[in-house]
């Protein structure tokens, strides 16, 4: 794809952190990191734990700045949190004192919107994420999968054109995970969102994305890029049934040298 349609560009990025104690050596989380995400593309990043995946997320979300290199979204360099970027973590981070509907409204409250407008947009997202019937419940009254749907609705309510997902399914049980992956895939494909998914679940990466980036051990950089080239991006369950899917998972497994590793 041509460079002009790149929604996200990460160029030669390094991020180092000062040592814990005075005089301790610097810690390099990522080094010489370069990758692009095209418009409406779904890209996953996989890698061993501690490879700097979360650092990547914080850099793209504008919560952290690179020590070297540039991160740009739609051609402009990221210098702080952007209202075009939504992000979602493994923890749903719903506010327990707010109802589902009020939680979805949360992100909109940073903006100049009338109460009625906020409510209308939140309801629209709840419908899109198929949880509208729980609008008036409190987070403790709904299940883990439903809570993650609410978190997605909250992420989408600000109308982002780019979303960052940091292991959003990893705290769920196997069945809920499959259902939610499908539901997310449909919602994301339906709204043509550009998505960066950070995950340690190789099957999830294959099932959901257009392209997979494999990161190395710390300091993290991209060591391999895999074009998934499978149909049915909006139906991960269908996708996993194809022989190429399991082939890819096997390939990733070897790429990460999982069979040699005993530490986690």
């Amino acid at each position: 794809m041509s460079a002009s349609c790149d929604a996200l560009k990460v160029e030669k990025v390094a991020r180092r952190f000062a040592g814990r104690r005075l005089g301790a050596p610097e810690f390099t989380a990522v080094h010489d990191l370069t990758f692009h995400v095209a418009d409406s593309e779904f890209v996953s990043i996989v890698g061993p734990s501690g490879c700097g995946k979360s650092t990547v997320l914080n850099l793209v979300a504008g919560l952290d700045r690179p020590t070297e290199g540039t991160v740009s979204l739609n051609g402009t360099e990221v210098s702080g949190p952007s209202s075009n970027v939504g992000f979602m973590l493994q923890k749903d981070m719903l506010l327990p004192w707010r109802t589902v509907l009020e939680n979805v409204e949360f992100g909109l409250e940073a903006r100049e919107l009338s109460k009625a407008e906020r409510r209308e947009r939140a309801m629209r997202e709840l419908k899109r994420c198929r949880i509208v019937e729980f609008a008036d419940r409190y987070p403790y009254q709904i299940s883990g999968g439903q809570r993650q749907r609410v978190a997605l609705a909250r992420t989408l309510a600000i109308n982002p054109n780019f979303i960052l997902l940091d292991e959003p399914f990893s705290a769920l049980d196997a069945q809920t995970k499959l259902i939610l992956q499908k539901s997310f895939a449909q919602t994301i494909a339906g709204s043509k969102l550009t998505t960066l998914l950070i995950t340690h679940d190789l099957a999830e990466a294959v099932a959901m994305s257009d392209r997979i980036l494999v990161m190395s051990q710390s300091p993290g950089r991209i060591v391999e890029e895999i074009d998934v080239q499978l149909p049915d991006r909006e139906n991960p369950i269908e996708r996993m049934a194809s022989p190429r899917a399991s082939e890819l998972v096997g390939h990733l497994f070897r790429a990460l040298h999982m069979e040699d590793r005993l530490d986690a």
Binding site: P81, S83, F87, M93, A110
Partner: peptide, 26 residues
């Protein structure tokens, strides 16, 4: 206080005053 909650609010471009009243106080 969960720092991720603050980060979430920051990612939404929320002002410090709003973070205080909407997250810290409740």
């Amino acid at each position: 206080l969960d720092r991720d909650l603050i980060n979430l609010a920051r990612a939404y471009n929320m002002s410090k005053a709003k973070i205080f009243w909407k997250i810290m106080v409740p």
